[in-house]
Design a protein around this nucleic acid. Structure first.
Lengths: 195, 195
DNA sequence: GGTCTAAACGGACCGCAGTCCGCTTTCATT
DNA sequence: AATGAAAGCGGACTGCGGTCCGTTTAGACC
């Protein structure tokens, strides 16, 4: 006999139809993004493809940016998994400096890879606490491991900043700088900061 | 008697009415942005306030982002002037390291100050070659002055990256980090990089 | 001043993101 | 199984960015 005690009982559970709809929306969005490309995916299309009304999309995902952030999140999660438990040097097992450099390269490539999706996710992609704060936390951990001292959270942010898409795109698309040079420059930055 | 030699004669000159319209559009946009705030300024409003048709706006400024970038450019230009010829330590006269630190602080504040406008300018704000490449050039110059060697263009980009609005906003709005701490962390970064 | 052409103009029009509100479904309770 | 209320649903509707194209105008040349 469940009695209601005066505790914070969190957000109310999701209704069955709501869950079903969310999954089918996400699946439809993922499929459409893969086949047509992000820019050609409209909310109406996703809605009709998922077999729901437009209002449902917006109730579940807040905005187009929110939906795209959710799509992006699927690949982001996979990437995080390979950082946490994948093979070295990205995953655990390699010495910290090697891990850090591998991390930077990997993130650089990942960001360029899903560039259009990241852009479409916009602020929502940035502020998904998961995305940014995971990377920051990991870098912080590696810096501590390397014996760096100082304001680690902000130092981590500082060395992650050049890997942000806005910066990368300027360099790759506008200035035609080859990726290898970006990697080398990032390695240099890290060594200066750590050293 | 002007004869037409086979030379590249650049872009054709702007017609008088076109110039007049551009100015009145820019003035109207500036005024509206100041009074109502960026987010409440629609293209239709700007058009009617400037006394021109909507088509004219888009022919002159390409897009809403382009128009906002043009508005932003007016304050950006003032800022550049104070870097080039203002009083030290931001302007010339102070030792390079002091200038560099003053530059970072100034840019940090400037970015936060015109946050909404920068966001509204979006990609157009980023890629206005003037904005980014001026800052990069200046930092490059100061680094050279300080005897730093390495890939200076990319090193400059790297230390400018944490000052980008996307990064700052995450820290200030999301993580509630006080500005003074951001300044201190940037100083620390610079000192590590310069060695 | 007349004429001719390229440039500029402007507002009707379109597509899409996002809102609103009356209807439907779920499910806890009995 | 019946019931009631809260959560969910969906599609018509709005507002804005952006385009299109028939009309107007600047200004070069005669």
């Amino acid at each position: 006999m469940p009695i209601s005690l005066p505790m914070a009982d969190g957000p109310p559970p999701e209704r069955a139809d709501a869950a079903r709809n969310r999954e089918s929306i996400l699946a439809a969005a993922l499929r459409l993004v893969e086949t047509r490309g992000v820019d050609c995916v409209t909310m109406d299309t996703v809605a009709s493809e998922a077999g729901v009304g437009k209002g449902t999309l917006f109730r579940r995902f807040e905005s187009r940016e929110g939906l795209m952030a959710a799509v992006l999140n699927t690949s982001e999660t996979q990437w995080q998994a390979s950082v946490i438990s994948g093979p070295p040097p990205l995953g655990p097992g390699a010495p910290p400096m090697e891990r850090l450099l591998a991390f930077g390269h990997s993130r650089l490539h990942a960001n360029l890879m899903s560039a259009s999706l990241i852009e479409a996710a916009g602020r929502a992609g940035q502020r998904s606490v998961a995305a940014m704060s995971f990377a920051n936390m990991h870098v912080r951990y590696l810096l501590r491991e390397l014996g760096v001292d100082g304001d680690l959270p902000l130092l981590a942010t500082a060395i992650l900043a050049p890997l942000e898409l806005v910066v990368l795109e300027q360099q790759v698309e506008r200035e035609r700088i080859p990726v290898e040079r970006l990697e080398a420059a990032w390695d240099d930055l890290v060594r200066r900061v750590v050293g």
